[in-house]
Amino acid sequence: MVQYNPLSSESLETEFFLESDETPVDNELQNLVPNLLLSILCLIWSNRQDWFFGVDMAIYYASDRPAIVPDGFLSLGVERFSGKNGRLSYILKRENEVAPILVLEVVSNTYRGEYNQKKMDYAELGVLYYVIYDSGRYHSRHGDAFEVHKLVNGVYQRLSGEPVWMPEIGLGIGREIGTYEGWRREWLYWYDSEGNRFSHSQELLEQERQLREQERQLRENLLAKLREKGIDPDTL
């Protein structure tokens, strides 16, 4: 998250705002992790149009306050797609004052206050769930590798267990080893109420490929057994 000078009311009206924080990430997981979560939502919520998941997108919540840019955030009760070309930024004024219900920060190689200052920033914004993921344990002295905090009476309280179930969202979130974009490692995933992990599209395609391969092998084995018995499959 990077802060900017406040936008004037005029600049908000003319949509003169930043599309992202314009700061190169120092860890490619800062983009891959939230993009994986987005790709799963696009599958499991494909029939819903009342949600938006932003990646590296500026959030403007007051004309006299600086924008904030989380690595990822989820809003419910807003239009899935807005405008002809989609959103360039997320402006609460234009979203009926609907603040994100969840914000994700992937800890940078350069520590940027994920465990302290940003918690205060998101509490002020009214974000219900704040997720911190330290993919490389770069700053384990500040906190654990994976934390989910819930806003209670204006203060974040850390939730226990994993995956962590979030009833207001209807999803859980947690970590698991898997493969995404050809990279096998630990990733963040969404889970159902029973703790079952949702798959992303690449995994589903691979599962379909493996199923087709199994069916092909079964068919070839069956044909081979018929030939061993002197039966020509082509005459059946």
Score class of each variant (00 low, 15 high):
residue 104 L to I: 03
residue 77 G to H: 02
residue 71 D to I: 04
residue 95 E to F: 02
residue 71 D to C: 01
residue 107 V to H: 02
residue 69 V to R: 03
residue 74 L to A: 15
residue 86 G to A: 06
residue 120 M to V: 12
residue 83 G to H: 11
residue 123 A to N: 04
residue 87 R to T: 01
residue 85 N to Q: 13
residue 103 V to W: 00
residue 123 A to P: 05
residue 112 R to V: 12
residue 92 L to E: 02
residue 89 S to G: 15
residue 103 V to Q: 03
residue 122 Y to F: 15
residue 78 V to H: 10
residue 78 V to Q: 09
residue 115 Y to A: 09
residue 109 N to R: 14
residue 98 V to F: 09
residue 96 N to V: 07
residue 122 Y to S: 00
residue 72 G to C: 11
residue 69 V to F: 08
residue 83 G to L: 06
residue 86 G to P: 11
residue 95 E to L: 00
residue 103 V to G: 04
residue 98 V to P: 01
residue 106 V to Y: 07
residue 106 V to R: 06
residue 116 N to C: 02
residue 86 G to C: 03
residue 99 A to G: 14
residue 124 E to Q: 15
residue 111 Y to E: 03
residue 104 L to Q: 05
residue 82 S to N: 13
residue 115 Y to C: 09
residue 98 V to R: 13
residue 86 G to D: 07
residue 88 L to R: 05
residue 86 G to Q: 06
residue 87 R to K: 06
residue 83 G to M: 08
residue 105 E to L: 06
residue 71 D to W: 00
residue 102 L to D: 04
residue 109 N to T: 00
residue 73 F to C: 02
residue 86 G to W: 03
residue 108 S to C: 13
residue 91 I to M: 08
residue 102 L to N: 11
residue 103 V to S: 00
residue 83 G to I: 09
residue 71 D to T: 08
residue 124 E to S: 13
residue 95 E to W: 00
residue 113 G to D: 10
residue 72 G to Y: 13
residue 123 A to T: 05
residue 114 E to V: 04
residue 80 R to G: 13
residue 97 E to H: 05
residue 107 V to E: 03
residue 94 R to Y: 15
residue 76 L to R: 07
residue 111 Y to P: 03
residue 71 D to K: 01
residue 96 N to D: 14
residue 102 L to K: 06
residue 79 E to M: 05
residue 79 E to F: 12
residue 123 A to Y: 11
residue 111 Y to L: 04
residue 116 N to Y: 05
residue 88 L to H: 10
residue 108 S to A: 09
residue 89 S to T: 14
residue 86 G to N: 04
residue 117 Q to D: 15
residue 113 G to Y: 02
residue 95 E to T: 03
residue 108 S to F: 03
residue 104 L to E: 04
residue 88 L to F: 07
residue 110 T to K: 06
residue 102 L to C: 03
residue 94 R to S: 07
residue 83 G to A: 11
residue 120 M to I: 14
residue 85 N to T: 14
residue 112 R to T: 11
residue 115 Y to R: 08
residue 106 V to N: 03
residue 70 P to R: 01
residue 99 A to I: 14
residue 70 P to H: 01
residue 106 V to F: 05
residue 98 V to L: 02
residue 81 F to Q: 11
residue 108 S to L: 01
residue 74 L to F: 14
residue 99 A to F: 07
residue 74 L to S: 11
residue 77 G to E: 02
residue 96 N to Q: 12
residue 101 I to G: 12
residue 98 V to T: 13
residue 112 R to G: 07
residue 97 E to I: 10
residue 105 E to G: 01
residue 109 N to F: 05
residue 106 V to D: 13
residue 73 F to K: 00
residue 123 A to F: 06
residue 71 D to Q: 00
residue 122 Y to V: 01
residue 87 R to P: 00
residue 112 R to M: 12
residue 117 Q to S: 12
residue 117 Q to E: 13
residue 97 E to S: 15
residue 94 R to G: 05
residue 78 V to F: 06
residue 76 L to K: 09
residue 122 Y to R: 04
residue 104 L to P: 06
residue 120 M to N: 10
residue 78 V to W: 07
residue 118 K to C: 10
